[in-house]
Nucleic acid binder design. Structure first.
Length: 434
DNA sequence: CCTCCACAGGAAGCGCAGGAGT
DNA sequence: ACTCCTGCGCTTCCTGTGGAGG
C-alpha cells in the first residue's frame, strides 16, 4: 500500500515539475485577484490575532493578585539578592503562562532601563522533557551565538553557572509543564545547588504545571526547594470570562459588531466546560469566521452556537490524534458499540441510560476490530490502563458497577457524541494505515 | 455461607530505543 | 564506535473485590 502512495506521489511531482512553467505562471494573474477579493471582502474582524488563543494580551484581568505575587517573589533581584523559586498550579486556560510572560516582559523592560543584570528563559518541558534538554535550551538562550549540542550535561551545566558568575547575572528559568520532565528531582537539585554556588548572581526556577498531583509525587527535598512560593490559578467564572471576552473583542472586532448575547453565551459555554479562557477565545474567533462566511454584519449568539460544535470537534480531534494507535482502537470500539441503536440501555444509579457499556464487551469488540485492521492486540491488563487514561482525558465516563450486575466491572460511557468520535477516529486510523 | 464470576489494579519483569559515558 | 544505563510500553502473574447464585 505504501508503495502505491509513494508512486502516486512521484507521479504528482513529475507533473508538477514539468507543467509548472506553463500553468503555474499563467495562474498568477488570477491569484492576485483572489487576494484582492479577500481584501475587499466584508469582515467582522479588525485584528484577528488578538482573538487567537496564542495572543498574550497586555492587560490580564482578574490576575492582578497573581501578578503581584510573582513580582514580589522576584523583586529580591532588584536589590541584587536571590529571589525565591516559584511553583504555579492551575488548569489549562487559566492564564498561567500569559501571566508569567507578562511579568517577565515587565522585568526585562525594567532591567534595560535600570542597568541591572537579569536574564530570563522560557522552556516548554513538553518538548524539552529531560534535565539535559532543559539545560541545553536555556544555555542557548543565554549564549545565542554558540551551539552546545553534543556537549555533555555537566559541561552545559557548568557553562550556565559560568554565565551567571561572569555577568553577575540573575537567571530566571520558566519551566512550563514542568511535570513532563522525567528526571525532575535531579534537575531541581542541580539548579538549586547551582544557585548556592553562584557568588553574585542567582538562578531562579518558575515551575508551571496543570497537574496538582505532580507536586505530591516529588521528592520532599525537591518539593521544598521548588515550591518556596506557591500560587494557584483558579478557573475563571462566567462573569470573568465575559469581561475578558468583552475586552478582547473590543480590540479584535470592528465596533458594534459583537452582540452581548454572543459574548454571554461564549462565556457561559467555556465556564461550564472548565473555566478555560482559551476555549472562550476560540469560540469567539470561530464565531467570527462563521459570521464572515455568512457575510453577516453582526456576530450573534447563533454564530457562537454554531462555533461550539466546530470547536468541540477540534478539541476532540486534537485529543485523539495524540493517542497511541491501540488506544484509538479501544476508543473506536467504544464509539462503535455506543453508536449501535438500543445498545447498552442500562440502569445506572436507578435511571436507565443509553450507551452504557461493560468493560468486558468493549475489550472483545476491540479484539475483533484489531483483527479486522490486521493490527496486533494488547492484553486486557493494558486495556484497563488505557481505559483509565481515556477517563482522565475526559473522553469517556466511568462508573463502578453496583447491584444488578454480576461480578465487579465498570460501566463505560462516551463523553462526546459517538458518531463524531467515530468519524474523527476513522480519519485518524485511516491516515495511519496508509 | 461458600463458590463462581468478571473483572480491577498492584508488582515484577522483559525487550526495545535512545541517550550518556568512555 | 562501543557499552552501559534508563525510561517506556507492555506482558505475566497475582491478589483483591463485590455481587449472583446455589
Amino acid at each position: 500500500m505504501e508503495l502505491y502512495i509513494r508512486k502516486a506521489y512521484y507521479h504528482y511531482f513529475y507533473l508538477f515539475a514539468t507543467k509548472k512553467d506553463t500553468t503555474f505562471r499563467a495562474g498568477w494573474g488570477n491569484l492576485e485577484n483572489i487576494f484582492e477579493k479577500q481584501l475587499l471582502r466584508n469582515t467582522v474582524f479588525l485584528n484577528k490575532d488578538i482573538i487567537s488563543p496564542h495572543h498574550i494580551p497586555e492587560k490580564l484581568p482578574f490576575r492582578e493578585k497573581q501578578i503581584e505575587d510573582i513580582t514580589n517573589g522576584l523583586s529580591a533581584l532588584i536589590n541584587n539578592s536571590k529571589p525565591n523559586n516559584l511553583f504555579i498550579y492551575g488548569k489549562t486556560g487559566t492564564g498561567k503562562t500569559s501571566t508569567v510572560k507578562h511579568v517577565l516582559d515587565q522585568l526585562s523592560a525594567f532591567v534595560a532601563k535600570n542597568n541591572k543584570s537579569a536574564f530570563s528563559c522560557y522552556v516548554n518541558c513538553r518538548s524539552h522533557s529531560s534535565k539535559y534538554k532543559v539545560l541545553l535550551k536555556s544555555i542557548r538562550a543565554f549564549y545565542p551565538e554558540k551551539d552546545f549540542l553534543g556537549y555533555s550535561a555537566s559541561f552545559v551545566y557548568e557553562k550556565l553557572l559560568e554565565f551567571a558568575n561572569d555577568k553577575q547575572a540573575h537567571l530566571i528559568l520558566v519551566l512550563d509543564e514542568i511535570d513532563k520532565v522525567k528526571d525532575i528531582d535531579d534537575l531541581v537539585y542541580s539548579l538549586s545547588r547551582g544557585n548556592d554556588e553562584v557568588q553574585k548572581g542567582s538562578i531562579t526556577m518558575i515551575g508551571i504545571s496543570n497537574n496538582l498531583m505532580f507536586k505530591e509525587k516529588l521528592d520532599p527535598r525537591t518539593k521544598s526547594s521548588l515550591c518556596e512560593i506557591e500560587l494557584v490559578f483558579n478557573p475563571y467564572n462566567a462573569n470573568e470570562l465575559r469581561e475578558i471576552l468583552n475586552e478582547r473583542s473590543a480590540a479584535a472586532f470592528k465596533p458594534n459588531v459583537v452582540t452581548d448575547p454572543a459574548v454571554s453565551l461564549a462565556a457561559a459555554i467555556a465556564a461550564q466546560e472548565s473555566g478555560d479562557a482559551r476555549t472562550a477565545v476560540m469560540l469567539m474567533q470561530r464565531a467570527g469566521e462563521i459570521a464572515d462566511s455568512e457575510s453577516a454584519n453582526t456576530l450573534t449568539d447563533i454564530h457562537v452556537e454554531k462555533a461550539k460544535a466546530s470547536v468541540e470537534e477540534e478539541i476532540i480531534l486534537s485529543m485523539i490524534s495524540t493517542l497511541p494507535q491501540q488506544q484509538q482502537l479501544v476508543l473506536y470500539a467504544i464509539a462503535q458499540l455506543a453508536s449501535q441503536k438500543d445498545r447498552g440501555l442500562r440502569k445506572v444509579t436507578g435511571e436507565i441510560e443509553k450507551g452504557v457499556l461493560y468493560s468486558g464487551e468493549i475489550f472483545e469488540t476491540y479484539l475483533e476490530l484489531a483483527k479486522k485492521f490486521d493490527e496486533r492486540t494488547i492484553t486486557s491488563r493494558w486495556y484497563r490502563q488505557y481505559i483509565n487514561e481515556l477517563e482522565m482525558y475526559g473522553l469517556i465516563l466511568v462508573t463502578a458497577s453496583g447491584k444488578g450486575i454480576k461480578g465487579q466491572t465498570r460501566l463505560i460511557k462516551l463523553g462526546f457524541d459517538a458518531n463524531k468520535i467515530k468519524v474523527a477516529l476513522e480519519k485518524e486510523l485511516f491516515k495511519q494505515m496508509s
